[in-house]
Design a binder for these strands. Structure first.
Lengths: 341, 341
DNA sequence: CTGTTAGCGCGTTCAC
DNA sequence: GTGAACGCGCTAACAG
């Protein structure tokens, strides 16, 4: 055996395995992939030798050859956002079924870094891109996606004119579910919508639905609270704190997200205002929503499910539409339900 | 011009650009990469034609040729954990400097899926792996990493015998800082360590340091509270709830992480126990620690910084040791400081 | 300055 | 069953 040169330390190739065994390259290839054309005894020898040499399959070379793509980009403003984490989980599981995997990239909510990230992904021959667009994204910012014709799905926020499918929440339904509870169970007479950003995306749709619900039920809209906030608790807390100084506290507040509600609750506590002075309902249903004081009543939209939908929409043979779950109200205590003054 | 066949819709190659222009392949390659060897007028023509045809650079082919690797795996038990999110951010920024990027993978804290994930990553020719080992990981589970000699760094939890560098927290120092505060400012006479898992990793080291600190200061250890919990708030909440039913509430509790403290606070609230009945100090300093009620006093370890360290340790020419930041106490209200009974 | 030739590591015919 | 030859898209050596 010419087996002196063990572990060349940098990448053993099939070629070396073949040479070592004195057989052909393609025999090794077939054996490694378990093709039945190869004598099982030969295959055994190949497998053993490969293992001995520390050979590892080079999937990226294989992909190049087969024009297959295996990498899907999940491009988000803030990977630290729990909603994103849960969506990533769902995306991962959908991709795993297809032998693909997700790479996460952060845009810090800046259009320019989002552009860089997308360009890199496309150069890396991503099989697809799932994008939560940065604030202010225009359809031209997404031109590369079309030019390279990379499959892509938008999440949460639409980019008008982009022509990309959107896996979003059913905003009108969400708001209806929330207001049903607030109005029918708690009989509120005024309410505010708090948090979220942008002249597009969920914010406007939800606010519109919110206005409609209020009108229909003759509830007073506390407009002053409809300000933009960043999507994280700290930003929401700051915004709420200054509102609390100048405006009164509405009887009820519908928060744009759980994260924003978390910030609001913090602001209330800092201002020494008991949480039960205001009926709070949030949106998203992330795990953290069960852990606040008081725990959040929230309309769950199941981010993991949305992530899975995105993964499925990406593959060419995939469904054209998403399988959306209806929003589901989780009643906890922030709305005033279930106990303790 | 033979420019009839626009946008072949599936991957324009350099070859096509060259043919279209009637020039050589390598000229195109050099022009595209801005090598000055090429006449700037020629380069212009190439760039224009490439753009017109919708050519996009295939970096994975280039990487194959150059034996370069660009993908780094971040393998974690739960991507949803805020600590992970912040660490990922730091890793990303370190990798960006090196033209690499991170892919996130979830192991659900299961050794077997961790094995699959690592195998995939290695087949994809990852430039490196940053791993927060799943509970119960043995050094044999990491054999592939050595055989393929993929650079790797462990985060937080060590795997004895693996021989992999560890970017962990300075557990003894963390505990000392926490106990200093509890003892000197709050004059506590008894304390418990709560949460965390495993017969290895931070838990044991911290618990040991904790015992030492207590002995030194003649503080009583409430051993009953030293139980294992999952790393997420929900698990901690459950564990704390059952402890509250059978054991008394210690005067002070040092929580293994912010996430665990969040669960503890929830359990206290559910049991109708005012949070000021117990001085709580946590560890990590994630963003969410500022948003609880009361906000957490915590020993910050800067996960983003740890992530950056990991990224730097991965490159061959990188530093052998990490640049560790000393743990830093953030005083908020959960320990009893700053206000309101 | 530009073109030619030879691979990177693998998968696929199609002969033998 | 096995092996030779070619191509995936790009880069690197050396010519010219």
């Amino acid at each position: 055996m010419t087996s002196e040169e063990d572990r060349p330390s940098q990448g053993v190739t099939m070629r070396q395995v073949a040479d070592e065994l004195g057989i052909s390259l393609s025999t090794v290839s077939l054996a490694l992939r378990g093709k039945t054309v190869i004598a099982s005894e030969t295959r055994e020898r190949v497998l053993r030798e490969a293992k001995r040499l520390g050979y590892v399959y080079n999937r990226s070379a294989a992909n190049l050859r087969q024009r297959r793509r295996t990498l899907v980009g999940l491009v988000v403003p803030d990977i630290t956002n729990p909603f994103v984490g849960e969506a990533a989980l769902g995306l991962q599981s959908a991709l795993a079924e297809q032998g693909q995997f997700a790479v996460l990239a952060n845009t810090r909510d800046e259009v320019s870094v989002q552009g860089d990230v997308i360009a890199s992904l496309i150069e890396e021959r991503a099989a697809g891109i799932v994008l939560i667009p940065a604030m202010g994204t225009e359809s031209e910012d997404l031109a590369l996606i079309h030019e390279s014709n990379t499959p892509a799905v938008l999440m949460n926020r639409d980019v008008p004119g982009s022509g990309l499918p959107l896996v979003g929440t059913e905003d009108a339904e969400i708001v209806r579910v929330a207001m049903d509870h607030l109005s029918e169970v708690h009989g509120i007479k005024e309410a505010a919508y708090f948090g979220g950003i942008g002249e597009a995306g969920p914010h406007v749709v939800r606010k519109e639905a919110f206005d409609g619900e209020l009108a229909r039920r003759q509830i007073k809209d506390v407009e002053a609270w409809d300000t933009f906030t960043g999507p994280n608790p700290a930003a929401a807390c700051e915004a709420a704190s200054s509102l609390l100084k100048t405006e009164g506290l509405p009887e009820a507040i519908l928060c744009h997200s759980d994260s924003i509600a978390i910030g609001l609750i913090r602001a209330l506590d800092e201002a020494r205002i008991p949480a039960d002075r205001c009926a709070i309902v949030a949106i998203d249903g992330i795990a953290a929503s069960a852990m606040t004081t008081p725990p959040l009543t929230t309309v769950a939209v199941d981010p993991a499910h949305m992530g899975r939908d995105c993964g499925r929409l990406l593959r060419p043979s995939g469904p054209a539409e998403r399988f959306s779950l209806p929003p589901r109200l989780i009643v906890r205590r922030s709305c005033g339900c279930g106990g303790r003054a």
